[in-house]
């Protein structure tokens, strides 16, 4: 029996729905439903094993505003984000520029060495640095003493006034190489003729870097800053392994504080509320990314 041809319109709708459904189902299971649960949970007081959830309205959010550690964690996230942009993207650009134009011999070897920390998991990186920074037997303390200097009395990771900066340094050690490779790829895509044209126009060296190189890799720099920002807000494993958020919460960040509240202190509702705040920050950053990439 000959089938009547279906109209293109209904056929199209069905196809769209069929094509979209796997993504929608997966997104629902792994994003939308958990987000909804966290939003819901943030309005209650309960622990992981609580039989009863007590509705508390917005008081978990009020509690966050009055929680000193929440603000320390947020401040630390910002320190890591801003510090990482300066150190990782900044140094990464510097190293990439040196490798791109300055060093011709052993370029690949150097690039590999600088990139290497990136392929180590953050947990392993943390453990390696725990040994290096150990106040009693760590090589760094011996080195500092051999140079005639005094290492921090409370240890590099034990002194609350410097520990977050030390963690920032470790993170930068790990990721600067990645930024360098990313930016180096961008630099190498800049046509040589542009530099030659610029040389004829009187821009060489730093002036060429400023007027030709930086604008040419602008989009890559935006991506690098975004990757770093997102990474800075979701940093967890490195801090968990090196300081566990200590000494006395000095290196707590939002993600470790969420984990701590949810799983160690049994304040799951409160952890949900901080998660929602972190989510709001993430959405804000995503919006900023969309805006900046549209402009570019």
């Amino acid at each position: 029996m000959p089938q009547r041809p279906r109209t293109a319109r209904s056929d199209g709708r069905l196809t769209y729905a069929a094509m979209l459904s796997p993504a929608i189902v997966l997104l629902s299971i792994f994003v939308f439903v958990p987000v909804a649960l966290v939003l819901y949970g943030s309005l209650f007081r309960f622990g992981l094993t609580s039989a009863e959830w007590t509705f508390v309205g917005l008081s978990n959010y009020v509690r966050a505003m009055g929680d000193g550690v929440f603000w320390i964690a947020l401040r630390n996230n910002i320190i890591i984000v801003v510090g990482s942009i300066v150190l990782q993207v900044g140094f990464g650009t510097l190293l990439a520029a040196v490798l791109d134009r300055g060093i011709t011999v052993g370029n690949t070897v150097l690039r590999t060495i600088i990139f290497a920390p990136m392929v180590i998991s953050s947990v392993a990186v943390g453990l390696i640095w725990l040994i290096i920074l150990d106040p009693n037997v760590g090589p760094l303390v011996s080195l500092v003493k051999a140079m005639g200097l005094t290492p921090p009395r409370l240890g590099f990771l034990g002194d609350p006034s410097i520990s977050i900066w030390v963690v920032l340094g470790i993170a930068s050690w790990q990721y600067t190489g990645f930024m360098m490779v990313l930016i180096l790829a961008g630099l190498q895509a800049v046509p040589k003729e542009l530099y030659q044209a610029a040389a004829l126009d009187g821009a060489t060296g730093l002036r060429a870097f400023w007027h030709i190189t930086l604008p040419a890799i602008r989009n890559i720099l935006i991506v690098a800053v975004l990757i770093t920002t997102v990474g800075g807000f979701k940093v967890f494993d490195l801090i968990f392994v090196t300081t566990g958020g200590g000494p006395a919460n000095a290196t707590q960040v939002l993600s470790t504080w969420i984990y701590f509240q949810a799983f160690n202190l049994g304040n799951t509702g409160y952890a949900d509320a901080i998660s929602v705040i972190l989510l709001a920050i993430a959405v804000l950053l995503g919006w900023a990314q969309l805006k900046s990439s549209r402009r570019a």
């Binding site: 046509p191 003729e193 542009l194 030659q196 044209a197 610029a198 004829l200 007027h211 030709i212 604008p215 040419a216 602008r218």
Partner: peptide, 13 residues
């Protein structure tokens, strides 16, 4: 001297 390149070498930005 001024030079004109085969692939123009205009500053894209």
């Amino acid at each position: 001297v001024a030079m004109v390149f085969q692939n123009y070498a205009l500053y894209p930005h």
